[in-house]
Design a protein around this nucleic acid. Sequence first.
DNA 1: TTGTAAGCGTTATCAC
DNA 2: GTGATAACGCTTACAA
Lengths: 336, 336
Amino acid sequence: MEGKKVTLRDLALKAGLSVNTISRALKDKEDIALSTRKTIKDLAKEMGYVGNALAGSLRSGLTKTIAVIVSDVANPHFGIMVKDIEKSARKHNYTIFVINTEDEHEMEERAIYTAIGKNVDGIIICPSQRSAETIRILKKNGVPFVLIGRRFEEEPDFDYVICDDEKGGYLATKHLLDNGHKRVLFLNGPDRISSARERLDGYRRAHREAGLPVSGELIIEVGASAGDTRQIVKGLIERKADFTGLFAFNDVIAWEAAYVLQKYGFRVPEDYAVVGFDNIQSRLFIPFQLSSVSNSKGKMSKRAVDIVLHKINHPDSRERFREVIDTTLILRESTK
Amino acid sequence: MEGKKVTLRDLALKAGLSVNTISRALKDKEDIALSTRKTIKDLAKEMGYVGNALAGSLRSGLTKTIAVIVSDVANPHFGIMVKDIEKSARKHNYTIFVINTEDEHEMEERAIYTAIGKNVDGIIICPSQRSAETIRILKKNGVPFVLIGRRFEEEPDFDYVICDDEKGGYLATKHLLDNGHKRVLFLNGPDRISSARERLDGYRRAHREAGLPVSGELIIEVGASAGDTRQIVKGLIERKADFTGLFAFNDVIAWEAAYVLQKYGFRVPEDYAVVGFDNIQSRLFIPFQLSSVSNSKGKMSKRAVDIVLHKINHPDSRERFREVIDTTLILRESTK
DNA sequence: TTGTAAGCGTTATCAC
DNA sequence: GTGATAACGCTTACAA
């Protein structure tokens, strides 16, 4: 019962037909007698034939595979996106490779080479580096790809799907300022990624419109790795930093900050009002009512798949995709 | 600049050498002159050669790919495991396919066929069905695999890595009973999966030891899909179900239950004490101090990769892996 | 309606 | 040291 994989050749020998006939029969080609098709299909099932997509891919040049390159699937934001992407892709008979880069340059490069080497038909990538250099490798190799969540200003040629980060940053900050928080701490992501820079633009615009100054010491970059935020917030509390509003680059950071605030006996929103980004609460019901900027992960994921498939299926199309999906602020108790 | 993929043949033509020599030079084989190796490697870099793993795989029979089949990467529990698995696998130069089954039979079967068809070298799967039938397909096709998180009592031949679910269920329940909660609601996972059955065994043992009866109406199965739990807990609250302790099959369910309790104005732990399972808090700092059973996801993931690689590299080994990783109860404020 | 031959890009084997 | 040849399992084109 246990065994080697059954090949077309095995079926051919057993059936006394040529490999070719078997292949065509299994694909239900018209030019094979109906009766033969039936016999062969039954035999295939009986022998547990599964087929070697590899060999077919080598010939056809298509692997029906998409690589998804993100910094970290353990972050629910990416976990949710990867799930949605996989789901969309599966509908079109595509399988996905998932590669984490941990936001590191070298890993991103390796991920890209791995994907190309495995002959994926397309790539959906959330780039983590400032330079577009790594991504250019894809262009050079003629691999269809689309950026998700981040973009490169200097490369208008790269297709992308992002959310309106500037608006999100603006809405979150404005809400805090409107609620009387004159000093809003911004725990931002690394400056090298576009979404962090654009959210900061929004943060600045809100201050400008409110006629309030932006103090540099309230804008702090936190690393992507879990735990980093805790140290920083601890430090801020201990040196009694002056702020009452807190806007975080993403929900994970916001949670972590609120976690530390709670540990120190502060209450949210009474002592500190907190706003996150990603609105993970829409998919995971956490018993902490975090106000957050919603960026329609589902929509972004679906568009990314559509775009990359479009590029796979229309390699000569010169169409460009630069999609910015709307963001909205979802208010909950963390900023009551 | 944009272009077709460069092949060994292209390099060979350019260099005036045979395809074979190029191949061996790139792999740093001793039998190629050092100078030639250098020239060729430089040329490869210059021309942007990436190599077609597909073709190599067809020949070697190895794809350096592992499929990871889980119900849902958007659940942080799986997101974290997939991340850990990817990381371990990457260290050994393996890439992972991720396929979600949404806990559905048909999708699980499809996932398995897809994985086999893509010639993965091995599979790590968290099976979602009662019957081991689908998994047997793997045996039949001779694909090395290991179960993670769940097992089949009737198939002692399947290797697995699980956590001590019975003990986890026992510890959580005992803790609640010890704290005076005579009626402990158990929001369990579907009975068709082994971990749910074993956690229930633990729940029962704790009651037995405490000399308390187990009431059937306190054991409720909740679906895997987010949102399901909310309806159920709402219903329980509205018909004033009699319980003060709550043990959930996983943290996601526990959060969701606590979420609803909070919405109804109840406090945790003053009104209801809540214990989860998975201890996601160890990786994600949520500002809700949920007591939870820790199951060492990192250890499980790592072992699963080690085992599947071992099976890939020693196809004839008859060694059997049945690993049960210890569980511990981590106390936090949700059960103070 | 079915079979034959070539080829996809590599790697393994053996000869030069 | 390097090159020629076959092979991996399948598909496409064409012949029978």
